[in-house]
Amino acid sequence: MSEVRIRPRQVLVLIIVFIFVLMMVHRNGKHTCQGPEYLQAMYSQSQANKLPKIYAITPTYARPAQKAELTRLSHLFMLVPNLHWIIIEDSNTTTSLVRNVLLRAGLEKRFTQLNIKTPTEFKIKGKDPNWIKPRGVEQRNLALAWLRAHADVDHHAVVFFMDDDNSYSVELFAEMMKIKPGRVGVWPVGLVGGLMVEKPLLDEDNKVIGFNAAWRPERPFPIDMAAFAISLDLFIKYPQAVFSYEVQRGYQESEILRHLATRDQLQPLANNCRDVLVWHTRTEKTKLSSEEALIKQGKRSDEGMQV
């Protein structure tokens, strides 16, 4: 039997090939995405640093379902690489419960946790003593103040008011990345306003000419908070754009948009407003009658836990 000899040059070539294969496997395992095309494109653009940042503003408040709803949203942030979450608690301090949700999702460098309490006094001009201040006004305005002070205004970014009880498709955030500077992206929202879907109405040139809203259609912008996202440069250009207690219920969307854009600046997205990628869902009020009975006995089912 003849003896097979491997020359040093052959060994070197084999080592180089082996190292190259390892590098390719590592690169593919780390950066590729096996999801739908829009998600693959998102990750591809993220590697090239071409994605606009999306600032998602979420007011939240303590309630039994808070952690569950924030956990659901945090899983979206795991999938969208360019999201920065500004989460504002309606409380006198930030809480460990909210922070733990963010950290557990691996979002250490991708969130800003703020807090401000909604005032309880009823000193707004002309308001009935039984009038309740709407949630989210103080919190969203604090987030806008943070953005104007800290956001990188030299790079295109998008601002989205992301309530914690809605249901969002990841594809919606891929659509937001198409929003141009100086524009407001709009799209349909499912299960809102007494309709299966509220949506912008477009003409043959795909320009927004109206809305199909059934509730208060006379509003300047009769759409839901989840129905639009705004180019960051508009908030920098118009620092007076904030939410207000001085407007009627259901007019907060119109209040913020009237400062920033006309209908001509609305950019229809989601397949020219034919696809529904967000739903105005609400969590059923948690029933805790058995828990209340335990509390009367000085006990709790969640003793030492964050549920």
Rank of each mutant, 00 (worst) to 15 (best):
V4I: 15
L12Y: 11
L14W: 12
I15N: 01
I15W: 09
I16Q: 10
F18P: 00
G35R: 15
P36G: 09
Q40G: 09
M42P: 00
Y43V: 05
S44I: 08
S44P: 00
S46V: 03
S46P: 00
Q66G: 02
L70R: 02
L73R: 03
L76Q: 08
L79F: 01
P81A: 09
E89S: 02
S91Q: 07
N92L: 10
T93A: 11
T95A: 06
L97E: 11
V98P: 01
R104H: 14
L107N: 01
L107C: 05
E108T: 07
Q113S: 08
T118H: 07
E121G: 09
K125D: 11
W131Y: 05
I132W: 01
K133D: 00
R135Q: 11
V137H: 07
Q139A: 09
H150A: 01
A151M: 03
H155Y: 06
F161V: 09
M162G: 04
D164S: 09
D164K: 12
S169Y: 12
S169E: 15
K178R: 15
I179T: 04
P181I: 05
V186L: 01
P188L: 10
V189I: 05
G190M: 12
G194M: 06
V197R: 07
K199Y: 03
D203F: 00
P217C: 05
E218F: 14
F228H: 07
I236D: 05
I236E: 09
Y238S: 06
P239C: 06
V242K: 10
S244H: 10
Q248W: 12
R249N: 15
G250W: 03
R258K: 15
L269V: 08
C273H: 06
R274E: 13
D275C: 00
R282W: 13
T283H: 12
E284T: 13
E284N: 14
K285W: 12
T286A: 14
A293W: 02
I295C: 05
K296M: 14
E303L: 15
